Simulated scan of single mutants.
Amino acid sequence: MDDVKAAVKGGSVFASGGGGWVDHGLEIGSAAITIGKPKLATVDEIPDDAIIVTATAIGAPAGTTDWQMLGKDYIKAVQLLQETLGKKVYGLMTPQNGMSSTINGWLPAAALDMVVVDATGDIRAHPTGKMGSLGLASSLDYETIQVVVGGKPETGSYIELVVKGTPAKTSNILRTASDMSGGFIACARHPLPAKYIKENAAIGGISKALQLGYAIMEAEPNGPAAVIDTICKTTNGTILGTGRVLKKSVTYSGAFDIGTITVETEEHGELILHVMNEYMAVDTKAGQRLTTFPDVITTISVETGAPVSVGHIVEGMEIAVFSINKKYLPLSASVKDPTVYPEVEKALGINLIDYAFDKVK
Results as ranks from 00 to 15, higher is better:
residue 280 M to A: 07
residue 75 I to Q: 04
residue 258 I to F: 11
residue 276 M to D: 09
residue 257 D to P: 13
residue 38 P to F: 06
residue 5 K to E: 15
residue 47 P to A: 05
residue 335 V to Q: 04
residue 51 I to D: 06
residue 26 L to R: 08
residue 78 V to E: 02
residue 185 I to Q: 03
residue 243 G to L: 01
residue 75 I to P: 05
residue 220 E to N: 10
residue 4 V to C: 08
residue 306 A to S: 15
residue 200 N to I: 08
residue 179 D to M: 03
residue 292 T to L: 00
residue 164 K to P: 01
residue 234 T to M: 15
residue 343 E to I: 12
residue 98 G to N: 12
residue 189 R to D: 08
residue 113 D to R: 11
residue 179 D to K: 12
residue 351 N to V: 05
residue 309 S to E: 06
residue 322 F to H: 03
residue 127 P to K: 00
residue 214 Y to R: 12
residue 209 A to R: 02
residue 246 L to Q: 15
residue 8 V to N: 11
residue 185 I to P: 00
residue 92 L to A: 03
residue 322 F to Y: 13
residue 52 I to E: 02
residue 244 R to Q: 13
residue 66 D to V: 13
residue 302 V to T: 03
residue 281 A to R: 10
residue 292 T to I: 07
residue 5 K to Y: 14
residue 2 D to P: 00
residue 288 Q to W: 01
residue 230 T to D: 06
residue 105 G to S: 02
residue 289 R to T: 08
residue 218 E to V: 01
residue 117 V to Q: 13
residue 298 T to I: 03
residue 279 Y to T: 02
residue 102 T to C: 09
residue 60 A to S: 14
residue 16 S to H: 00
residue 356 A to W: 01
residue 330 P to V: 14
residue 3 D to L: 14
residue 333 A to N: 08
residue 40 L to G: 01
residue 348 L to P: 06
residue 35 I to W: 04
residue 167 P to R: 06
residue 95 P to A: 09
residue 125 A to H: 06
residue 31 A to V: 04
residue 353 I to R: 11
residue 44 D to S: 15
residue 273 L to R: 07
residue 353 I to V: 15
residue 166 T to S: 14
